[in-house]
Design a protein around this nucleic acid. Structure first.
Lengths: 194, 194
DNA sequence: AACTTCCCTTGACAAAAGTCAAGAAATAGC
DNA sequence: GCTATTTCTTGACTTTTGTCAAGGGAAGTT
């Protein structure tokens, strides 16, 4: 499917768009292509764009005190990708977003999106609801991290809820996302398949 | 301070309210008082109200498979309190909100708030920004749970960022919130003060 | 195809955290 | 002020997870 259209359908999942509204949005939206391992935003850059992934997969990570990369999140086709704190507060990003695969992205400047949120009800509604859903997702992840063992987290967060990540993300990064070492993840997997 | 006014100030932190707008809101808002240990919402109840705490402290927990209470969150004066999933989706709540102290709350029906979000720009703006801030908070908690040890979590999440909880919340619940056993928390504290 | 790099697993051991049980200390409620 | 209850700590032990190190295998690049 044409990539811009994917973004239109995303908005219209929440409320219909008038043709003129869509044209206004499409005019401000541009496409961006990333190669494997290419960063979408690097450490310390400020982010003034909103991104929507139409193809491919983005990994989020922070560089920790010990210089290790700590993976915090993934975004793939059909989802937004943004270093949210930097986007909202116009501060240097402490997280890096990098493509794990060839990735295609719809990009819109924050000022344009902000304007659309004010003027286009469908965008307002979409923005609010995407935020609400992301919040619930996050609550879910939180509970898992607070109160579940490594094995349980792997089972629910990966095997049940995002099995496609297994094919697309190196296990080191999944381990980091689950808050465990790669070796522990390896053993968890060995025990399950035994 | 008069409690309803606290709620008004909350909204006006984000954008000014016309007097007529505030009157419309005040008319729909009511006060509610909870004694220590009194639930604000119980397991399986659906939530169709939004709550704002003006005095006191609310603990959130879920009852797990092993019948243990897993604490997930706290809300105190100046913050909203809501079983967000139940509130948004009108589904039975899987979390319980209970007062840890004598607590005073501003209550507004969801339909009224929804209407105000549509019609009063300040409420729209406040709602969106409170959600955004809560999301950032959650990201922060998440990172801590994913990538920090028990001791580090206690240091940052409690000692640095919410020390007043120490005086107000039994350590069992703080331990659960940090994703560790009460014994471990006790040892962490012993090691720190040594 | 050969080479390099990255990825994953496994073993041995160390460290961190959980569990069970007992008792001390603090607190709520009368 | 007293009592019953809750809360917190500590010890001994178990389980889980992390760390270090080595090796095999897959995948990307030239």
């Amino acid at each position: 499917m044409e990539s811009l259209l994917q973004f239109r359908y995303m908005i219209e999942r929440y409320a219909p768009l008038a043709e003129s509204e869509w044209e206004a949005i499409a005019e401000k939206a541009s496409l961006r292509f990333l190669k494997r391992n290419q960063p979408l935003i690097s450490l310390g850059e400020a982010c003034d764009k909103l991104w929507f992934v139409t193809k491919g997969l983005i990994r989020y990570y922070q560089v920790d005190r010990d210089l290790e990369e700590r993976t915090t999140c993934f975004s793939w086709e059909g989802h937004f990708a943004t270093p949210f704190s930097s986007y909202l507060k116009s501060t240097p990003s402490y997280e890096v977003l990098v493509a794990l695969e060839q990735t295609e992205i719809v990009e819109i400047h924050r000022e344009d999106i902000t304007a659309f949120i004010e003027t286009i009800p469908a965008v307002n509604s979409m923005y609010r609801q995407v935020l609400e859903e992301a919040f619930l997702q996050m609550e879910h992840l939180n509970f898992s991290l607070q109160h579940r063992t490594a094995t349980e987290r792997y089972n629910t967060l990966i095997l049940e809820e995002a099995p496609e990540l297994l094919q697309r993300v190196p296990l080191v990064h999944l381990a980091s996302y689950l808050g465990i070492s790669p070796e522990t993840l390896s053993r968890v997997r060995a025990k399950i398949s035994a």
